[in-house]
């Protein structure tokens, strides 16, 4: 088996364990390359179907192409597509772009808070009506007990310490020192009432593996990752105000792979274009302890 086969097999195994163990299961889809690969792996795991709802936390500052791409594939692949947001903070303008808070506080409000309350069902969720093509408020949202996330261990320090199945307490907090053990292919799929489990099928994948797999499987990836002629492209997608494109003329998946393997990005961290990381001495740890993806 090739390395990609082995990674695929393990991720599929994890997805199936999650599907089997959690009745209230959801998969986060940020539209970026990692969670899109994750979505593709779900189609692999379930033989072309995606029996797990997808959740997108819309910060309202996402690059517009991302929304168009999301809705297109939600329709083509017949996805149960959910959207959540921090309507209150957006309305009050408590965001970094409006100048009322710093980047980290903005992330905490529009992502962590929105995610926490959308998962718990306290805040409304919008669900795509495939018949009309519009989003409607989901009636009686239930709390999700299993949340599948596309985090990779090579992204940054605190993610390198994750388990495949990582229990979170009632407040979505990650008690790092108290993580239960995880052995061989046996995961912590049981959970106490009121708590939930984060599931990370992509932990062992590197950025390069992701692109190699996209190439092998021919997965449709959003255009923002490719140079459209301006000599720049995005390497990591987030909110428009805090995510800068990198200088690169890679127009195809093959060119991106080349760039990562031996070219200009072989030794540069992927999240170097993300501004919020620089504000926290502990990298993303503070955000992640509080439920950030």
């Amino acid at each position: 088996m090739s390395q990609l086969d082995a990674l695929e097999s393990q991720s599929v195994y994890i997805l199936r364990e999650a599907y089997r163990s959690f009745k209230q299961l959801v998969m986060l889809w940020s539209i970026g390359k990692d969670s899109t690969v994750l979505l593709w792996l779900a189609r692999k795991a379930f033989f072309g179907h995606v029996p797990i709802p997808l959740l997108h936390i819309d910060t309202h500052y996402k690059i517009p192409e991302m929304i168009a791409y999301r809705d297109r594939f939600a329709r083509e692949w017949n996805l149960t597509m959910l959207v959540g947001r921090n309507a209150e903070a957006l309305q009050a303008g408590q965001t970094f772009p409006s100048g009322r808070c710093n980047r980290l506080q903005c992330c905490a409000a529009l992502k962590s808070e929105a995610l926490k309350h959308t998962l718990s069902g306290e805040w409304p969720r919008w669900i795509l009506n495939h018949r009309t093509g519009t989003y409607e408020v989901q009636p009686q949202p239930e709390a999700f007990t299993g949340v599948i996330v596309g985090a990779r261990a090579d992204e940054e320090g605190s993610r390198s310490k994750e388990r495949y199945f990582s229990p979170r307490d009632k407040h979505s907090e990650w008690d790092i020192a108290e993580q239960p053990p995880e052995l061989w292919n046996q995961f912590n799929t049981d959970f106490a009432p009121g708590t939930h489990v984060r599931i990370h099928p992509l932990l062992d994948w590197t950025e390069l593996n992701i692109w190699e797999y996209i190439e092998r499987e021919n997965i449709p990836i959003i255009d923002l990752y490719f140079d459209q002629g301006q000599g720049t492209r995005y390497r990591s997608l987030g909110c428009a105000p805090c995510t800068g494109p990198v200088v690169s003329s890679a127009r195809t998946v093959a060119e991106i792979i080349e760039e990562l393997k031996s070219g200009k990005f072989a030794n540069i961290a992927e999240r170097s274009g993300r501004q919020q990381d620089a504000e926290d001495g502990g990298g993303l740890e503070t955000l992640r302890r509080d439920g950030y993806m």
Binding site: S2, Q3, L4, A6, L7, P64, E65, A68, Y69, R72, D204, E212, E215, R216, E217, N218, P220, I221, I222, D223, L224, F226, Q228, Q230
Partner: peptide, 23 residues
């Protein structure tokens, strides 16, 4: 930048071009 995504034929499987290193 364009708003449309690239149209790529789906459900096609490409053989791996290079023998990937083992892990």
């Amino acid at each position: 930048m364009t708003t449309a995504t690239k149209t790529i034929p789906f459900n096609t499987y490409r053989a791996e071009k290079t023998a990937l290193l083992e892990k």
